[in-house]
Design a protein around this nucleic acid. Structure first.
Length: 554
RNA sequence: UGGGGCGUCGCCAAGUGGUAAGGCACCGGAUUUUGAUUCCGGCAUUCGCAGGUUCGAUCCCUGCCGCCCCAGCCA
């Protein structure tokens, strides 16, 4: 793994260093704790890189622990997908894979212990009554009439809850803290609820399940976690986290909170992502337009690019909205180094070279301009080729370095051609160009010293192949769909376009796993799901920077 | 108007008493058989605002202002 990354510093790293220096901790154990109720997205990647990265950096370890305390939402499909994604990102949890459900027995015993200490009680109010009793942000709550039940009665009731003697919602176990606390989390939070639901791992063994607050900290404690890193919204829970640890007198991990990632032009909440999938706005969790790890993998984003992105955006506590261009830049940076180059024509315009000396002229083309070790391939120029429609303009603006009537341009890896004649159909559309070539310019500049600034890609219609290519655009037209009244109203109707492109012959056998650069266009890779052995379906990973287009847009 | 956080360049983000790193974006220019890449150069006399302490403050104090989170038997 590349640890060479530009390691900027951040407040969490600083604090860990301080804890180690001061002797408060002797090792660093972190954990990535996803709830298996959805697929991982780029926001999770930030947390994964942070937790695993810190553990690596301090020679500690990072656990993968599934926070599966709510059986109605969690599924094995999700735990498998999560394991695959974390591994693909390049992180290894070794033997340290855990489930909060592994600790149900221990958690139950601890609940009993707290009841014994008079720190927990069974509340028999209805959910509505409990809500009303909690008070509001500005008014204190009121104590439940069941708050002062005897320890023995609490024990008997809690045992009966566990034994399935009550229906869902009949009773709840609550921590006895302070109904007037200004921090709502301390107003006698619920520890256990009755849920007659099958759990993905424990099946029907339990019909009471611990709440997040009564499971997370203790799970960290059991595993010896030293630094429990989570997102900002849990900051208010820290006093409760500490209260349980203190009341139980067990190992005390330290919770540290950081700001979650927000990315422009996409949504990150699991609920919204689930909705996109269920309402079929996308073709599944791994749709290449999704901000999920699996979607990015399918789209061709290399894991190194995602790790670099997480390193680059830093870690802080202020709400941040990262621009999509930052992510795309990381993807380009990686792919520019590794992607073999090929020529492809997405929007073909037929060109006939009228004076080609032979029916076929072979040239050697480097697979990467800066990396000769990536080898070369042969390209065959024939009298009939296609070029991209956007590389020809009948009436070009100043500084248009491509083809136009009477103008010259270089065919990449081949020779210079001049446009002699423009052929149109009845409707006036240009359907063919007749060009003459300068045979002296194969692998050489014009002997007379004339300058031909433009170079364009081409494909021989005799040897090339036609393949489907999907062009993705951002899923949303609004920079912050997350804030919209209805984020679905912001969906980009043109986020997926499919064209039929001409590509170099060997691309017809391309397999998923390799990302190519189609020169002057972008990076493309065969889709893992829709490609077959000899029929790849290409998709655009990301475009190349295009300063010409940018200038034109102004 | 309870509590908890946050406010340094368009977007992120270091720095936390000694006179503002870096990245993305943007703007110039060089090289280029990808208008790609690469390379050079530019880009905050200023750190939410107002006072105060100090020889000196983004860093300390006071007061404002703005934004985010919390009233699930979700995590």
């Amino acid at each position: 793994m590349d640890t060479s990354a530009q390691s900027g510093t951040n407040f969490i790293r600083n604090q860990i260093e301080e804890d180690l220096r001061a002797g408060k901790r002797e090792e660093v154990i972190t954990r990535f704790p996803p709830e298996p109720n959805g697929y991982l997205h780029i926001g999770h990647a930030k947390s994964i890189c942070l937790n695993f990265g810190l553990a690596q950096e301090f020679n500690g370890r990072c656990h993968l622990r599934f926070d599966d305390t709510n059986p109605v939402k969690e599924e094995d499909e999700y735990v498998n997908a999560i394991r695959e994604d974390v591994g693909w990102l390049g992180f290894d949890w070794g033997e340290h894979q855990y489930f909060a459900s592994d600790y149900f027995e221990q958690l139950y015993a601890w609940a009993v212990e707290l009841i014994g200490k008079g720190l927990a009680y069974v509340d028999s109010q209805t959910p509505e009554q409990i809500r009303e009793g909690r008070g509001t942000l500005t008014t204190p709550g009121t104590e439940s009439p069941f708050r002062n039940r005897a320890v023995e009665e609490n024990l008997a009731l809690f045992t009966a809850m566990k034994n399935g003697e009550f229906p869902d919602g009949a009773h709840v176990l609550r921590a006895k803290i302070d109904m007037a606390a200004s921090n709502m989390n301390l107003r006698d939070p619920v520890m256990y609820r009755i849920l007659h639901a099958a759990h993905h791992r424990t099946g029907d063994s339990w019909c009471i399940y611990p709440m997040y607050d009564f499971a997370h900290g203790q799970s960290d404690s059991i595993e010896g976690v030293t630094h429990s890193i989570c997102t900002l919204e849990f900051e208010d829970h820290r006093p409760l986290y500490d209260w349980f640890i203190r009341s139980l007198e067990i190992h005390n991990p330290q919770q540290i909170e950081f700001a979650r990632l927000n990315l422009s032009y996409t949504v990150m909440s699991k609920r919204k992502l689930l909705q996109l999938v269920q309402e079929e706005h996308v073709r599944g969790w791994d749709d290449p337009r999704m901000p999920t790890i699996s979607g990015m993998r399918r789209r061709g984003y290399p894991p190194q690019a995602i790790r670099r992105f997480c390193e680059r955006i830093g870690v802080g506590k202020s709400d941040s909205w990262i621009d999509l261009s930052t992510l795309e830049d990381c993807v380009r940076e990686e792919l520019n180094e590794t992607a073999p180059r090929r020529l492809a024509v997405l929007d073909p315009l037929k060109v006939v070279i009228t004076n080609l000396p032979e029916q076929r002229i072979d040239t050697r083309a480097a697979n990467h301009p800066q990396r000769p070790e990536m080898g070369t391939r042969t390209m065959s120029l024939t009298p009939e080729i296609v070029i991209d429609r956007s590389d020809f303009l009948e009436d070009p603006p100043r500084k248009f370095f491509r083809l136009a009537p009477g103008k010259e341009v270089r065919l990449r890896h081949a020779c210079i051609i001049r446009c002699d004649e423009v052929i149109k159909d009845d409707s006036g559309e240009v359907v063919e160009l007749r060009c003459s070539c300068d045979p002296e310019t194969f692998g050489a500049n014009p002997a007379d010293g004339r300058k031909v600034k433009g170079t364009i890609q081409w494909v021989s219609t005799e040897f090339g192949q036609q393949v489907p290519v999907r062009l993705f655009d951002r899923l949303f037209v609004e920079p912050t769909p997350e804030r919209a009244e209805d984020f679905r109203q912001c969906l980009n109707p043109e986020s997926l376009q499919e064209v039929r492109a001409w590509v170099e012959p060997e691309l017809g056998q391309a397999r998923p796993g390799t990302v190519y650069q189609f020169e002057r266009i972008g990076y493309f890779t065969p889709d893992t799901k829709d490609s077959s052995l000899d029929a790849p379906v290409f998709q655009r990973t990301v475009t190349l920077r295009d300063t010409w287009a940018k200038q034109q847009g102004k």
